[in-house]
Write a protein that binds this DNA or RNA. Structure first.
Lengths: 132, 132
DNA sequence: ATCAATTTGCGAATCATTCGCAAATCAGGA
DNA sequence: TCCTGATTTGCGAATGATTCGCAAATTGAT
């Protein structure tokens, strides 16, 4: 049972936990932890471990070739519909009746959604929709 | 105005048009066109051009580092909610009232969806949900 | 048929990610 | 606390997808 015992894994876990459901590249995480003692290799290795354990979810950036990681440890991260802003990387939750109805409708048709990846992309109000 | 004049670009266009809304990696497309005269470079270059023109949409594979391309030339590809099967790559459209309501609800909150990327991931009925 | 502009194919370069391995760290028992 | 085997780290090299550079081929218009 691999716990979160080493210094490096704790650092990584703490960082991600503080930003639930937000998208980060491995490089961004390493930068966010610069000054602390963790190598890029360790970042990658532990992200991979956490993904296998289901604590984080991997997804791909729009046009880019980087993989993005997102902490999904909280219950809500696995039930709500997500709206991700492609500009600021923030993710918003949507739990309106219409959203719930739709998710149920999908399930009733035999399509099994990956609940950690119910993400729709766009631009949030703050970042300004006009730019799309 | 760059039309679809060269042999290679026509080949690529024809291939993608035949599989609307299905996800392919550059390698898969090149393989699908093997036997025809088109190099991997030309595949990449023209995919890039088509993406800039808005004819196709790029997205990232789950855990992988490949970029996936999808033909979005048809009107429906830009209005319906998409369900993509992560096993077979097929994409299904969802246009139920609940789905439309939800999409409208999102818009009314000031979040501007990228309509070519309204995709939810999971496993389709044919591929067997149990495997998730 | 000619010419300037565009596009191709090839091989080399780039960049994120993964691997291999020796050194450091860890957990747990004496 | 000290030892010991197992796990994890950091580094640098390898991998693999994508992009770049450039000379040769193709294109469309005169």
């Amino acid at each position: 049972m691999t716990g979160y015992r080493t210094e490096q894994r704790k650092l990584l876990y703490a960082f991600l936990e503080q930003h639930p459901d937000e998208h980060f590249s491995a490089r961004e995480i390493a930068d966010g932890l610069s000054g602390h003692s963790i190598s890029l290799s360790a970042v990658y290795r532990n992200l991979s471990t956490m993904a296998d354990e289901g604590l984080i979810s991997r997804s791909g950036k729009d046009g880019g070739r980087e993989i993005l990681y997102r902490f999904t440890g909280a219950e809500e991260c696995r039930t709500a519909l997500h709206l991700a802003c492609t500009q600021c990387g923030k993710t918003f939750h949507m739990s309106t009746p219409a959203a719930q109805l739709m998710l149920e409708g999908i399930a009733s048709e035999g399509f099994c959604l990956d609940r950690t990846k119910t993400i729709l992309y766009g631009v949030c109000k703050k970042c300004g929709c006009e730019s799309v």
